[in-house]
Design a protein around this nucleic acid. Structure first.
Lengths: 254, 254
DNA sequence: TCAGAATCGTTCAACTTTAATCATTAGTAA
DNA sequence: TTACTAATGATTAAAGTTGAACGATTCTGA
């Protein structure tokens, strides 16, 4: 096998799996460890992957430091099932808005609809989308250091150039009286804007955000449907009264 | 079999398989290795395929093409020394524009100046910058699948909101009569804009781009200084006559 | 914290591919 | 036929690629 083929294969495998072990590659490509090592080195130099001890990983895993709740396997599965359900809301030829954030990022691998156009304020989202050959517009503006989301007046100006069939929006708090909330005023403004420009809006969130209230209000509960994995007992009736809630079936994972 | 036939066949085989080995071609076309080699050479000169060690591959493979010369370690070192010199042009409190592309990406690790603000159309650049706690604005617009640069009318509109002390711009061709050139019209327009908005512009490029001419003209030679690793003998006088050239000292690597 | 295990970077020799050169063959026109 | 040119095939030194060895480094579990 030629070096070129091997390297293309490595990239392909990585796109599917996000991380890959040295030994797996040695087996799959039937080459020596030295050779794989050299391939990885070269691909890293070309900024096509990132080497890690024992293998390689995709370039940018949004948040380097895994935040508290992404840690447990349980939560990963929750997020994936939420993401899968969200992706099913996307129809052929849709124009959608995809908010920056880890939950919305998970949606991308599950998108099956054809001829979709996506607008996003998450650079990581944009890169994953074009890798999947999905037409993608990125909003301009100030890049926030911690979340790497694009925000600010330029982003607000840019987003108003579009209209969406559907918007998928992340939140930090869901409360029956305060509605949807998030810590950063700039991000809140952008999310509100996205919601107003969309025919239908979905808030994607795991169940830990219920009864939480963050600094900035985005909009009222009834303005968007919620896609989540479960509703805590204590606020079940309050929620279903005020808005539409879709519960992801965790056993339906791929 | 005529040379013409053979070459057409080679291209046909390549279109089907995307990569092909030397030995396979020798067998399939029943010609000597020398002949096949000459055919491949000619086809490469006509930009119809790309030769790789042990065979040939399609030109625009699915994913990555922009940096086929980033391969050798030698070239990596060249790019790093160019990048280092470029970074030294940045002073405290500067507002700079950083064009998308691999050469400009290398500049970021070498930035030492304090309180710098950077505007870029490369999402990867933006992420690296905020990781270094450098204030960064990303242009919005359409994301190009192969280079992952942001381009188009929105990007043009966004960039005009800024003024720069210095712009660092990548190119694909440097020619004494045609000036600086690049393959994509959209990118060319953006680069031209960046240059016009900057007090001073630097073109960063390794020496392989001299005497090359790409599809779209950006601007004339004298409009920007060049930062490179060396000038080929044949165009040394032509270049130094028409513009300012900075040569990076390769031994000054960190 | 420590020791053992796994992984990494470097070096080297065997091997393969390439580029350059030269001899041979085929085709062409006088 | 003969002389000339272009294309092909063969040879060989140089360059590139590969796998294995080995010490250095990092990870892991006690």
């Amino acid at each position: 096998m030629l070096a070129e083929e091997r390297q293309q294969l490595i990239l392909k495998i990585l796109t599917d799996t996000s991380v890959v072990k040295m030994q797996e590659l040695v087996q799959m490509l039937a080459a020596s460890e030295s050779t794989i090592r050299r391939d990885l080195q070269e691909l890293e130099n070309r900024h096509l992957l990132r080497r890690i001890h024992g293998g390689a990983s995709l370039l940018r895993k949004l948040n380097e430091e895994p935040d508290m709740e992404t840690k447990t396997l349980k939560n990963v599965q929750q997020k994936k099932s939420i993401a899968k359900l969200a992706a099913q809301k996307i129809k052929d030829n849709d124009c959608i808005y995809l908010d920056a954030g880890t939950t919305t990022l998970e949606i991308i691998p599950f998108i099956r609809a054809a001829n979709v156009t996506v607008v996003t304020n998450g650079p990581a989202h944009a890169e994953l989308l074009v890798r999947k050959r999905i037409l993608c517009y990125l909003l301009g503006g100030l890049m926030k250091p911690n979340t790497k989301a694009v925000v600010g007046s330029i982003a607000m100006q840019n987003i108003n150039l579009f209209r969406f069939d559907t918007a998928f929006i992340g939140v930090n708090g869901i409360d029956s009286s305060m509605g949807y909330t998030t810590p950063d005023p700039e991000e809140a403004a952008l999310k509100r804007c996205a919601h107003q420009l969309a025919s239908s809006s979905y808030v994607v969130s795991d169940s830990s955000k219920f009864s939480e209230i963050s600094f900035c209000k985005m909009f009222d509960l009834d303005k968007a449907a919620i896609i989540t994995d479960q509703i805590p007992e204590r606020c079940q009736s309050l929620m279903t009264e005020k808005t539409v809630v879709y519960i992801a079936d965790r056993s339906a994972d791929s």
